[in-house]
Design a protein around this nucleic acid. Sequence first.
DNA 1: AACCGTCTAACGGTTTTCCGTGATATTTAA
DNA 2: TTAAATATCACGGAAAACCGTTAGACGGTT
Lengths: 221, 221
Amino acid sequence: MGKLKKMKVHIADDHQILIDGIKAVLKTESDIEVDGCSVNGEEVLEWFKTHKTDVLILDINMPKIDGIKVLQRLKKRDFQPLVIVLSSYDDIKLVKEVMKIGAKGFLAKKCAGEHIAEAIKTVYNGGQYFSESIQDKIVTSFSGVDQSKIGNQDGAFFSSLTEREKEILTMIAQEYSTREISEQLFITINTVETHRKNLIKKLKVKNAVGLAVYAHKNQLI
Amino acid sequence: MGKLKKMKVHIADDHQILIDGIKAVLKTESDIEVDGCSVNGEEVLEWFKTHKTDVLILDINMPKIDGIKVLQRLKKRDFQPLVIVLSSYDDIKLVKEVMKIGAKGFLAKKCAGEHIAEAIKTVYNGGQYFSESIQDKIVTSFSGVDQSKIGNQDGAFFSSLTEREKEILTMIAQEYSTREISEQLFITINTVETHRKNLIKKLKVKNAVGLAVYAHKNQLI
DNA sequence: AACCGTCTAACGGTTTTCCGTGATATTTAA
DNA sequence: TTAAATATCACGGAAAACCGTTAGACGGTT
């Protein structure tokens, strides 16, 4: 194609080793340039205050501010990069949620590295990209999706948790009792219980066991 | 240096994208050759039945058979590769555990990609390698570690469970309440509670949350 | 027959979780 | 500077989990 301008890409993932890996993979692509990297959501938001990088490869599970929240906040700004979400957990509900918030692509981490460049080029040219493992699921489930209301309760399965909630979730999943948590965090039992209640509601689970399983599935422990 | 023989490396991680990344990073190393890859523990064990690859980069969180188990089983065989454990969770307890079972190195996923080659070369030459984030912790906590008993009751817990207990454990981990379990299995609540009590004692956990995490770690759900 | 492991069951009491609801201060985003 | 999100705390009541202990029934072993 002989483009004059290289596509600029920003990579966000809390695993530096993965970032370096993707960078190495993309090095062979002459029309792609890795412009910057972030290891947490805060850094991503900071970066896009001063840069207009074309494509953002965005991991969901990140410290400080997770991918979902980053996506939501970027949406409200003037400049928005094309976002390809990266996740180890290729659940269709998650895919739907991030697409609603405006992501242009979804890559499961279990997909082959060669697809990254493919995905970047596709979304750069106005398309959408999904890794194979979820392509067929989407066709059947994306018919009749209400594109309006964003971040509402029905997609809230994966809606982002606050830092405090994650902290408490992690402790619950490590078998700490409410009392123990309250003592360690220097807050009252009442507060911890409120957080637990909110967690159960947000994650749509039944009890602390559900929270623990969620935490484990999402590598929070 | 001019080695005639390249160091052969096998990479095991459930995220293909990370494998491809590491491969790309290692491509610049003239004396390292990636010999094969696995995306789950089963594949790793299968590979080492027929290959004598020098170094194994082993992820902990993998489907089917997790990294710890792979390590334990490899230990019982004639040929043992040098193992560098890869984990997103750089907890000192985990480090100690895998080193006890015979790992030669530990890389946190948040470390820089350039350290992989470094780690491989170090263990290949008989050394041990730890990523920076944990180096200092080790010095202070490795004094007086009992190097004896390996593959002890930690892994034997599971086999000591009866069929009924496993059945109930699975249900607890799926958020069923005691009442629901009793109804589904046509036994009284008292009986289910007795089983739960026995499970907690056998698996040395504190509560149902611990049971759920255990069940999840052992792929019972 | 005596023994062991498993599954079943019961009981009383304590602790913890769960649920709804409402409220206030602080921080942060627009 | 509003408005929204977040973190904090309270209370009352219902439900469930947790704890220790005991014990009958059944099947298989030695």
